[in-house]
Design a protein around this nucleic acid. Structure first.
Lengths: 107, 107
DNA sequence: TTTATAAATAGCCAGCGAGTTATCGATTGC
DNA sequence: GCAATCGATAACTCGCTGGCTATTTATAAA
């Protein structure tokens, strides 16, 4: 399996798809029809996006009669947060090393 | 101008480009040649990626003789962090609303 | 001054992916 | 049972982008 943040970046890179995810975060549970109404693209396009989001673990679906409700899986953002922290960590440790070096040169 | 996180998601979605950025975060200042040596793609490809990263504000370049050094601009990740926090915030406030509702129903 | 090297640009190509319309499967209401 | 609606799938088009090679520009070295 690829690194988890890989798929997350790719999935959220598309504006339409990210907008759908944002809407689910803001407003919670939504049917495909409700999402389509505001997406600015056709229903099949929305379904495809939801499929990609689901594949990435970013959303869950729940069937209720002939309606399908989708909701955001917020925990799935963790790898993104981890990656960002890791980058910041690299930065910080290089800074620390520089500090150490200067300290050693100073003494 | 587009939302800042828009361009960041798009820029970091490509694995090769993200790898270059990661390397700059890990190891700091690098010449194009050094980056090319590990990128697995041609020098022009690396230059193009660096151009995109620079456009996104994620890297800086510094000319030194006939070498060009690039370095990561870590602060540029802020919009990404903000966006993530915002999503988490939406989630939380919906949860709070639900709690309020339950509390009101309870009394 | 001529040659060699670093990096950017130009120009091209192939593959991917996001969009469309049309259709199908499933569920509900008449 | 039949018509209607919801959502997913199929099949296709098209633009974008990431890759390449070749070339250009700039600096350093010989």
């Amino acid at each position: 399996m690829p690194q988890p943040h890989e798929i997350i970046f790719k999935t959220l890179a598309d504006p339409t798809r990210r907008a759908i995810f944002e809407r689910l975060c803001r407003d919670g549970d939504q049917t495909v029809a409700a999402l389509t109404a505001r997406a600015g693209v056709s229903q099949p396009a929305v379904s495809k996006h939801l499929g990609v989001l689901k594949q990435a673990g970013l959303v869950r679906d729940r069937h209720e009669g002939r309606n399908t409700h989708y909701s955001a899986e917020l925990g799935a953002l963790a790898p993104l947060i981890d990656w960002t922290n890791q980058m910041a960590g690299f930065w910080q440790s290089r800074f620390d090393n520089l500090e150490d070096l200067l300290k050693r040169m100073d003494q």
